[in-house]
């Protein structure tokens, strides 16, 4: 029983981690605490619906469509909303991301109708027994792909020259500008990556559940994940995502499903009071 619950928690947590990773990339680059991340997940799911059900693209092409579409949207959001607001108080920018999610929700419901849609992909959906655990292939695929994406991003961020420039730009805008880094282009790239990671999360969440704008709530679990893991930390986001997934499943099993949220946020409060920089974050934080 415990093993089964842990497996599903870790599988879910991997998807949350992926979405949270996208969140941190955006936060690191542009200091934007993005409340629209949940809607980015929804967008990813609807891009999948568009590619697979409406356009009837073959699966590999559909994946390409989702990634390109999400990256373009991320750049669009950055160019239209985030860049004009750079330097504004943090609360104004948070508010603009909230307004953005209102607009995106309305837009999606106008284009696709309010009724949810089912997503059928050629991904395996069966299950098998392994060491007494029943492993769902879809869960396993989702987790594996999430880990692959996270790994790929980690390698890109650490070892490629663009990744290096991104890190430089994120660490200090001024220093990077002086050194000739195109900070603006790096920020745009960060938004593209953040949106794409959320969209891939949306592809899996949409298949595990059904595709509707209600997926936003699930996408927003990235917020506590990021804070628990450490706001500026990339491994922290992944750890935070896994923790949120496991806590959710454990609380649902042993306490009650409605206690899941409160458990996650109770942990968040404890972390904020005891270790505000998060589990894996660095201790550089404004404290009174």
């Amino acid at each position: 029983m415990l093993g089964q619950v842990l497996f599903s928690g870790l599988a879910l947590g991997s998807i949350y981690g992926l979405v949270a990773l996208g969140f941190v990339v955006i936060l690191k680059a542009t200091d934007v605490f993005n409340f629209a991340q949940g809607m980015f997940v929804v967008c990813g799911a609807y891009l999948a619906v568009t590619a697979l059900s409406l356009l009837g693209l073959p699966f590999p092409l559909a994946i390409l469509f989702i990634i390109l579409g999400a990256a373009l949207m991320g750049m669009g959001v950055h160019a239209a909303l985030i860049r004009p607001l750079s330097g504004r108080p943090i609360l104004s920018i948070i508010m603009v991301t909230i307004a953005l999610s209102i607009v995106m929700r309305a837009g999606i419901e106008i284009l696709y109708g309010p009724a949810g849609r089912t997503l059928s992909t050629p991904l395996p959906s069966g299950g098998f027994l392994f060491a007494g655990l029943r492993i769902s292939q879809l869960h396993l695929t989702a987790a594996a792909v999430s880990w692959l994406c996270m790994l790929a991003f980690g390698l890109f961020f650490r070892f490629t020259s663009v990744g290096l420039l991104m890190r430089a730009a994120a660490d200090s805008h001024e220093a990077a500008t002086i050194a000739g880094v195109k900070v603006d282009a790096m920020n745009r790239l960060a938004w593209a990556i953040g949106f794409t990671l959320a969209a891939i999360g949306g592809l899996f969440l949409g298949q595990l559940q059904i595709v509707s704008t209600e997926l936003e709530t699930i996408g927003l679990l990235a917020l506590p994940a990021v804070v628990i893991g450490g706001m500026q930390s990339i491994p922290g986001a992944i750890l935070g995502g896994l923790l949120v997934g496991v806590i959710e499943q454990l609380a649902s099993t042993y306490i009650s499903p409605k206690s899941a949220d409160v458990m996650i946020y109770a942990l968040l409060l404890v972390i904020l009071l005891v270790r505000p920089w998060g589990l894996l974050g660095q201790k550089a934080i404004n404290r009174v």
Binding site: L12, Q209, T217, Q249, S256
Partner: peptide, 16 residues
């Protein structure tokens, strides 16, 4: 047996 409106995975409920 209860579940959240926004549930993605119902392993706990299925086990129950």
């Amino acid at each position: 047996i209860t579940m959240k409106v926004t549930a993605v995975d119902v392993t706990p409920q299925a086990l129950e």
